[in-house]
Amino acid sequence: MKPKLLFATGNAGKVRELRLLVGDAVEVVSLKDLPPVPEPVEDGATFEENAVKKARAYSEATGLPALADDSGLCVDALDGRPGVHSARYAPGDDKDRYEKLLTELADVPDAQRTASFRCALALVTGKGDAPRVEVGRCEGVILRAPKGTHGFGYDPVFQVEGQGGRSMAELPPEEKSRVSHRARAFQLMRRHLLAL
């Protein structure tokens, strides 16, 4: 019988991505496949802390090995902000958040607008061993105006390094899934998942 893994997300796109990565080796279920579980508070100082906290809480609540992620945008000129607060950087929707970012960076020269998307993945097996943590990064710069219609969050204002001047929101989904911070973290985590 295949081992079952809870991916602690309700995001169908993330679940599909993980299922493609592990193939038939592991049965991946999401939070939508299980009875409701209380959501842990994400109050860690780093992406790694938040991912471990979520994975541990969901593994304990369900009795399953759990994989959780935490990710966000880190802008060098803002000393790493919005960082772990990326989803709560400004009230409202994604557009409100990236518009606040563009306003904060209005006077920052192009050469100093470097940034990275970061994703921490944590795996807790529930067998008493230490959490496995892997981090993926995607480097780029913050644009002066949004470009593209794909993706979500800060994708329209993040120009991906090595992608011909395109924003993350200009990359087709299959291309984004090869170069994104989450894709890189998944690739690093794959060996731990296949060992389940």
Rank of each mutant, 00 (worst) to 15 (best):
A183N: 07
R132D: 07
A120F: 04
P82F: 00
K176V: 13
A51C: 09
L143M: 09
V26W: 01
A8L: 09
V37A: 02
A68R: 07
P146L: 01
K147N: 13
A122K: 02
K4W: 07
L73S: 09
D76C: 03
F47R: 03
L193V: 10
R19Y: 01
V28E: 04
P91Q: 12
I142F: 08
A169C: 07
D107E: 14
R178E: 14
L121Q: 03
L193M: 11
K14W: 04
D79F: 04
V84D: 02
G165V: 06
Q187K: 14
F186I: 11
R81N: 02
L6P: 00
S180T: 10
M1F: 06
A25T: 08
V108F: 00
K2S: 13
E175N: 04
A130V: 09
T125R: 15
E161V: 08
T149I: 10
S59Q: 05
F47E: 04
V52C: 05
E161L: 11
A77W: 00
P109V: 09
K127F: 01
V52M: 02
L193R: 05
E49Y: 07
V124P: 05
A115D: 07
E139V: 08
R190G: 10
Q159C: 13
A145G: 01
G92L: 13
L102K: 02
V37Q: 12
R97T: 09
V15T: 15
D94E: 08
V108W: 04
K95Y: 00
L21V: 15
Y58F: 15
K100N: 05
Y58R: 13
G72A: 06
I142R: 12
E104V: 12
P156F: 01
R97D: 02
Q187S: 14
G83H: 01
V26D: 08
Y98P: 04
K2C: 04
E134M: 13
R190I: 07
A122D: 03
A111V: 12
V135W: 01
L194V: 13
D79R: 14
Q163P: 00
K32H: 11
A90W: 03
P82R: 05
Q112R: 15
D94H: 08
D107V: 02
P40M: 03
E49Q: 15
R118T: 12
F158Y: 02
E48N: 05
T125C: 09
P146R: 05
G136Q: 11
G10Y: 00
E17H: 12
D69T: 01
A12G: 11
